[in-house]
């Protein structure tokens, strides 16, 4: 069974159609990339899947169950977790506290949540920061905290919204390693990313959005040489010189 299936997804904001007839299927264990220029509708798609927005039309199935309009906290309990493009740490609290909030999704016991959170922190080589205030972390560490919190909810499918934006090249490589490691844990990953180097190295399959519409789909190298994709990113004249 497909872990996520989207059929004909629409999202309108007033008169603006932010997503137009988006369909895609993600199989368990995949790292699935979603790319596109700014304003293409990538985050809107994520927000529809994660229950922040109710879709204007279309169907979303998670593990075969229709999840249109399901609330975010219920989706989390079902095994769908996400990170935010603009990081949202609980800034006045410690890193451990932040991750424990995620861990409480699966337990009511504080000690159990703490054990789980420490395990996740260790897994991400983040345990030395456990007592740091989340608001004092560097941007790279905040992105890592987003992942740690999401991971603590024990997801089957993890939506990563630009977790590498703003990172230095060495940090990007590290993050790529982390994401590959997560797949090794059996977590399916759906990732939005702007950094092409990263998405090419990571993804098994890529979908390209442009003005809310899917313009290309396939293996990363296929997509990268697609004329429409180059046009969407760079404009018309570059296609001519490329051809």
């Amino acid at each position: 069974m497909n872990i996520l299936e989207i059929r004909g997804l629409h999202k309108d904001f007033g008169g603006l159609r932010a997503l137009n007839d988006l369909s895609l299927t993600i199989e368990p264990g995949q790292i699935f990339g979603l790319i596109g220029p700014n304003g293409a509708g990538k985050s809107t798609a994520f927000n529809c899947i994660a229950g922040v927005y109710a879709p204007s039309g279309g169907e979303i199935y998670f593990n075969g169950v229709r999840i249109n309009g399901e609330r975010p906290w219920n989706l989390c309990k079902r095994g769908l977790a996400r990170t935010f493009q603009i990081v949202k740490p609980f800034a006045t609290k410690s890193v451990l506290y932040n991750v424990m909030v995620g861990a409480f999704a699966r337990t009511n016991s504080r000690s159990e949540a703490e054990r789980k959170a420490l395990e996740v922190l260790e897994y991400l080589h983040f345990e030395k920061h456990r007592n740091s205030r989340a608001g004092n972390l560097t941007i790279a560490d905040r992105k890592r905290l987003e992942i740690a919190r999401a991971l603590a909810t024990e997801p089957q499918l993890l939506l990563l919204d630009e977790v590498m934006a703003g990172l230095r090249p060495s940090e990007v490589d590290e993050m790529v390693g982390v994401i590959q490691q997560l797949r090794g844990r059996g977590i399916t990953i759906f990732v939005i990313e702007h950094i092409m180097r990263a998405i090419m190295a990571l993804s098994d399959h890529v979908v390209v959005l442009h003005f809310g519409q899917k313009i290309a789909e396939g293996a990363p190298h296929q997509v990268a040489s697609d004329e429409r994709v180059i046009k969407a990113y760079l404009g018309d004249e570059y296609v001519i010189s490329a051809g």
């Binding site: 994660a50 922040v52 609330r71 975010p72 906290w73 989390c76 309990k77 977790a81 996400r82 935010f84 949202k88 740490p89 609980f90 800034a91 006045t92 609290k93 909030v101 995620g102 409480f104 999704a105 919190r149 999401a150 603590a152 909810t153």
Partner: peptide, 13 residues
Amino acid sequence: EEPEAAMALGVNV
């Protein structure tokens, strides 16, 4: 502190 992030982590705020 961060209602949106909390909801995504399973919190019915």
